[in-house]
Computed example of a mutant assay.
Amino acid sequence: MNEFIYKKHKRIKALSARMSDFSYKKHSHGEYAIGVTLRGIQQYQLDGSHQLSHQGGVMFFNPEQVHDGSAYDETGLEYAMLYFEPSLLLEATQHKESIQFTEPIIYNQTLSKHVLHLANAVLHDKNECICDERLIKLADHLTGFHQTYSPHQDSIIQTMKEEIHLHLKDQLRLDTISEQFGLSKFQFIRYFKAQTGVTPYQYYLNGKIDGARKIIEQEKDVFMAVNEFDFVDLTHLNRQFKKVYGITANDYANHM
């Protein structure tokens, strides 16, 4: 049985998930994601390394950190996730520099409790004061589990990503983009994947899905998302959306 329940409060999104035979495709988020494994074992590839989160494991994903995910075995998996806009996490932790979580999985009961308390508040539509209080408690506890850093990613890759983002609402032309960097199309694909863990097309498609998600959250209109990001039709968006979020864009809109 696979069940995915999303709820959003301001700049925080929460997910309650049960998985048995579902596998996330390789993707990334523009947000920070912090989750707790409640039952079973969650397995995923993160930065080329195989990770296993057992019961009680607190999982950390930095923005644009590529990963996939599935249950480790047939017993299935239950977990909860929180997704934070980067600006919100900086506000809550009172940090001015970007935050980088350096450990992918931590086993800490207090941290796990704070993540789940906030997730439950969002999932059960608690009022804003309760959500804010639980966010502060979590933020205070997070300070020992991250480092501040200056973005170190190759500036060329960052420019390549920015160029791809310019085309999220139309067709991706790799021949044209690769020429701007003095590379053939195939050199561009190999270089991009070696640096980011995904192909340019995967990055482009993930960006379109993420853009569609934001429209759905703001406008509650799946057809606007289809048109704005040039999906073939709603079926195409639903199919791609489910690979990343576990549910269709239609169902996601209903949750929001």
Rank of each mutant, 00 (worst) to 15 (best):
A139I: 07
L15Q: 03
G182V: 11
G207H: 11
Q202M: 04
Y32R: 00
T176P: 00
E128K: 09
L237C: 06
T37K: 07
Q240D: 12
L174M: 12
E103K: 15
L15F: 01
V244L: 04
K126M: 10
P86V: 15
Q153M: 09
R173W: 08
L183M: 15
E78P: 03
K169D: 14
G56I: 06
A121L: 14
E97S: 07
M19T: 08
G30P: 12
S112C: 12
F229K: 05
Y149I: 02
M81T: 09
F181N: 06
A212D: 04
K113F: 15
Q45M: 14
H54K: 15
E64W: 11
F192R: 06
V198E: 13
H236G: 01
Q42N: 07
D210Q: 11
Y252N: 04
H67D: 03
E64P: 00
Q187A: 10
Q147Y: 00
L82K: 09
S178E: 07
D47V: 00
K208G: 02
S70P: 03
L142H: 04
Y191I: 06
A225W: 04
N2E: 09
Q65R: 11
L205V: 14
Y72I: 02
G246L: 05
G40C: 06
E163W: 07
E228R: 14
R173Y: 14
I157V: 15
D68Q: 05
Q43S: 10
M160P: 12
H165D: 15
D73M: 08
L90N: 05
Q153R: 06
Q55D: 04
T143K: 15
Y72E: 11
K25N: 00
Q171H: 10
Q45I: 12
F186I: 09
Q51A: 04
I41S: 00
R173G: 00
V115I: 13
Q218W: 04
T110L: 13
H146T: 06
R239W: 02
V232L: 07
N206Y: 07
Y149W: 11
L15N: 00
E217P: 08
L38Y: 01
D140W: 09
I247W: 02
S87R: 14
H9C: 01
Q65H: 01
H167T: 14
C129T: 15
D140E: 08
E3L: 14
Y149F: 13
Q55N: 08
E78A: 05
V232K: 13
F84I: 09
D154R: 14
K242L: 07
E133I: 13
V58R: 13
D21G: 04
K193T: 08
Y32F: 06
G48S: 04
E91G: 00
Q94F: 08
D251C: 03
L15M: 07
K193V: 03
E31C: 01
D154Y: 02
E179Y: 12
Y201C: 00
P86Y: 05
D154L: 09
F4L: 02
I157C: 03
Y252I: 06
T148D: 04
R190E: 12
L46S: 00
N206W: 10
T143Q: 15
M256W: 12
R190S: 13
F145K: 00
H255S: 09
F145Q: 07
S16H: 06
G207V: 14
N127F: 13
R11H: 10
N250I: 06
Q240Y: 10
F61H: 11
H146D: 01
T235C: 01
Y252S: 02
L15E: 02
Y107M: 01
